[in-house]
C-alpha cells in the first residue's frame, strides 16, 4: 500500500487551511502531523481519510500498481478522531455488530470482547455508550477502528480525554504491527512525535 500526497490545498472562503502539503507513505511507514491549534491538522487528516474533498492537489492510495478508489480505501482504513462518534443510544456490542455488518464482516464476539478487554472496557459491552465517560468513549473508538485489522491507521489526537493508563494502552496500540500498516498520527503532544518516521509540521 502506498499513499502519495502531492500539492494538497484546502481553502475555506479566502482562507487556506491546508497549503501545499506533499509526502509519501508506504506500508510500514508512519507520519506524525503537528502544528498549533487551528493550523489545519484535523482538516488534513479528514482530507487524507476522504471525508473532505481537497480544493487542489491529489491524494492517491495505491495497492501495488493499482490505484484504489476511496470506497476501497475505507475498507482498509481505521480512524480515531474527536469528530468521529458512535451511537450513544446503542450498547458497545450493538455498535460493533452494526459496524461489522456494515463493513460486510461477520460479527466475531470473541474478537470484540478481546478488543474491549485490551482497551480496559471488559464487561462494559452491554452498556449503552451514553453511560460511558469521555475517556471510555475514546477507548471504545479504538475497538471500532481496529476491529477489521486496518492497514491504514489514522489517529487524530489519539490520547484526548484519556488518563495515564488509557494513554499507555493507546501507545501500545500505536506500536502494534508496525510493518503491516501505515500510521498517520496528528497530535499536539511533543512526546508523541517519536511514533513517526516522518514529521509534517503545519504552520498557522
Amino acid at each position: 500500500m502506498k499513499l502519495t500526497v502531492s500539492g494538497l490545498w484546502k481553502r475555506y472562503g479566502r482562507r487556506n487551511v491546508v497549503s501545499n502539503v506533499n509526502f509519501e507513505l508506504n506500508t510500514g511507514d508512519s507520519v506524525v502531523i503537528t502544528g498549533p491549534n487551528g493550523s489545519g491538522k484535523t482538516t488534513l487528516v479528514r482530507l487524507l481519510c476522504g471525508l473532505l474533498a481537497p480544493s487542489k492537489g491529489d491524494i492517491r492510495y495505491k495497492d501495488g500498481e493499482q490505484e484504489l478508489s476511496m470506497d476501497a480505501v475505507f475498507a482498509h482504513l481505521g480512524l480515531v478522531g474527536p469528530y468521529l462518534q458512535y451511537y450513544r443510544d446503542l450498547t458497545a456490542y450493538e455498535n460493533m455488530q452494526f459496524i461489522a455488518k456494515a463493513r460486510g464482516l461477520s460479527v466475531d464476539m470473541p474478537r470484540i470482547d478481546a478488543l474491549l478487554e485490551r482497551v480496559g472496557l471488559a464487561g462494559r459491552g452491554k452498556d449503552e455508550l451514553r453511560t460511558y465517560s469521555s475517556g471510555m468513549l475514546q477507548r471504545f473508538k479504538y475497538v471500532a477502528a481496529l476491529y477489521h485489522e486496518p492497514s491504514i491507521v489514522v489517529f487524530d489526537e489519539p490520547t484526548a480525554n484519556l488518563d495515564k493508563d488509557g494513554a499507555a494502552i493507546v501507545y501500545d496500540l500505536i506500536q502494534e504491527r508496525p510493518d503491516q500498516r501505515m500510521l498517520i498520527l496528528a497530535t499536539n503532544e511533543p512526546h508523541e512525535i517519536r511514533f513517526g518516521k516522518q514529521h509534517v509540521r503545519i504552520a498557522q
Partner: peptide, 16 residues
C-alpha cells in the same frame, strides 16, 4: 448533530 455521519461514510457505501 451526533457526529455519527462520518462513521457511516467510512463503513458504508453511499447508496446503502
Amino acid at each position: 448533530e451526533q457526529q455519527t455521519a462520518d462513521t457511516l461514510r467510512l463503513v458504508l457505501p453511499p447508496n446503502a
